[in-house]
């Protein structure tokens, strides 16, 4: 870890790597830990944001704008995913009266 990787004074690109690894693992942990489908959706958003943060840090590190365009497209996909996913959840709740993924196991096995 040398000074040549500094992005802003005192903070290197590795700091941002550690931060996004922590956020990504927290998202994975939340998906495994909680059974409420809405909270699991939020954890998916958290993982997407961890990846976005890493892309922006590397975009600054390498001086390339393209990574920021990728972040833009990830946000687009996240918005579409949330719209469809919450519609599916609404329909599930209307039919099954729960959002617990231990109950919604008809497609399991």
């Amino acid at each position: 870890m040398g000074t040549h990787t500094e992005l802003i004074p005192g903070i290197t690109v590795e700091h941002y790597l550690w931060l996004s690894v922590a956020l990504f693992c927290l998202g994975v942990f939340g998906i495994l830990f909680r059974r409420n489908a809405i909270i699991m959706f939020m954890c998916v958003e958290l993982m997407l944001n961890a990846v976005n943060l890493m892309l922006v840090a590397f975009s600054r590190y390498y001086g390339q704008t393209d990574a920021q365009v990728f972040v833009f497209f990830i946000m687009v996909v996240a918005a579409a995913e949330v719209a469809v996913g919450l519609a599916i959840l609404m329909m599930l709740y209307r039919n099954m009266h729960t959002t617990d993924t231990d109950v919604l196991n008809k497609l399991k096995w």
Binding site: H4, T5, V13, E14, R60, Y61, Y62, G63, Q64, T65
Partner: peptide, 12 residues
Amino acid sequence: LMAGAGQPDETM
């Protein structure tokens, strides 16, 4: 990591 761009472009 590969070496970065050095001084980053502020208008990026």
